[in-house]
Design a protein around this nucleic acid. Structure first.
Lengths: 266, 266
DNA sequence: GCCTGAAACTAACATGCATCAGTAGACGGT
DNA sequence: ACCGTCTACTGATGCATGTTAGTTTCAGGC
């Protein structure tokens, strides 16, 4: 095999050609809520970011149990929410550019989990002082922040169902389908691929299976000709077939049609 | 066996004597946030409840996909959050008296899951109109509502970890330990038992295992002399041993010590 | 007291996944 | 170019869990 992977990807029409590049500007702030907010509110949200930083794979932005006075906004790359227990790591969530990563640390004193870079990242720092100000004087921004945490909770619930219902290959497929849809919602999805820095160990820790079994699950997706996962990057010629296999229904991401945000109470 | 269960419970010092009764007044509203709010705010929250209703096992208070103009506050009994898929039911969350059950339906237009009575319940109805009013004129109440949804998200994350890390007997033990602690936090826990209306099918749907395997798991807890689960009611003489077995750490429930709520920005 | 249905339970066999023990390929450092 | 380390991959074996097909227990209705 080895060099045969890319050849097979070509044969199956999986390759996308180039790599997807994340913009490294602040164009993502507020992510999918962007078009629900006024220009004034958007500028205000951008002004929340006091500083922009870079991070590398494995960097711990916030440790479980830490008390923090700032929140993090992901600008490019992927971030894991992790819990260490029993000398093992469990990944309980993934974030994509545009996400506020630790708003819960703003209202809950301690953090119940850690925030870790899944690969090279760029992120912004928003001091809580400025968020407090927003909550008091910007009701629309305040509701946008609440909405973001509710959306996180909906994604958590889907992960619970996924872990209860699906076997390992389907869990991996579901995670990629979800991330692909989340990129679509901020206009950054590729037609035939999804680039990530995830190792098979990362996939295993997200799915609650051993790394060895994650490897077999990846192999099964390849064998079924549904997707080729190579160094974290997924290539497929048929997202619909992959979604059907994973029983992926995107409704829980609330991407289609109006949210309550359209109403005037916001 | 059969009639021997209760006898064994007596022998092991598991029995608690009487059943725990939930108060059927509104004393639970706002649950554990109660002592963080002023008398005035509490009276306001109680005034949110326009009506009190009763429900029976299996009653669907809200269906997935429904658009609702009211929120639900649980006063007595248990409520499940469920998702139907593949002709199977998956339980993604449980609520105890004092919990706001569907605040997410207030900000997210559709519901991504259903709200179902796990047994006989009493609940209050809070029209969204009144909640909207609260968000605008009662900043402390607004933050309390946000906090409640953040706490739900923290519990969701723990369930994800639980499903990734634990085998079926430990999952069941963990769920009971969590519920016991949540009752403690509102001052309603029994020393040696936890009464619930859960069937083994309910436990299976919470743990993501088959009903038959849930039965084996219950049997294992009995065999290890950690707990006796009988028609949903759990009896134990040693909560600490059960907690150790389930690797239950209560910190994610944020019950010990100050939350940010103590600070003046609330 | 008996009937009935739901829940709890049992046994036998099939499959998913963990674990152990290793090999092979990719990448960075020197 | 070499080496060490991390990631990807393979096979064998055992445990956890699913599935099928039942039996037993129990609470409630008649």
């Amino acid at each position: 095999m080895g060099a045969g992977y890319r050849a097979q990807a070509e044969r199956n029409g999986w390759s996308d050609g180039g790599a997807m590049e994340f913009p490294n500007t602040g164009d993502f702030l507020a992510g999918r809520l962007r078009d629900k907010l006024s220009q004034d509110d958007l500028e205000f949200i951008e002004s929340l970011v006091a500083e922009t930083r870079q991070g590398e794979t494995g960097d711990v932005l916030l440790s479980r149990g830490a008390v923090t006075e700032q929140s993090t906004i992901l600008i490019s790359g992927y971030i894991f929410r992790t819990i260490e227990s029993d000398n093992r790591r469990f990944i309980v969530g993934v974030h994509v550019p545009g996400d506020f990563v630790d708003l819960h640390g703003f209202a809950l004193k301690r953090l119940d989990h850690s925030i870790v870079a899944a690969g090279p990242i760029t992120y912004g720092i928003a001091p809580h002082e400025r968020l407090r100000d927003a909550l008091e004087h910007r009701p629309r921004v305040a509701r946008a922040l609440w909405f973001a945490t509710l959306l996180d909770a909906a994604i958590h619930r889907k992960w619970i169902q996924m872990l209860e219902q699906l076997d390992a290959p389907r869990r991996i497929a579901h995670i990629y389908c979800e991330l692909h849809r989340r990129f679509e919602l901020v206009g950054q999805a590729n037609a035939r691929s999804l680039r990530t820095p995830f190792t098979q160990i990362d996939l295993a820790d997200m799915c609650g299976v051993s790394a060895i079994h994650a490897n077999r699950a990846v192999g099964k997706l390849r064998e079924l000709e549904l997707a080729e996962i190579r160094r974290g990057d997924l290539y497929t010629s048929d997202w619909d077939a992959l979604r059907a296999y994973a029983q992926f229904q995107a409704d829980y991401l609330y991407g289609d049609g109006p949210l309550r945000f359209d109403q005037d109470w916001l």
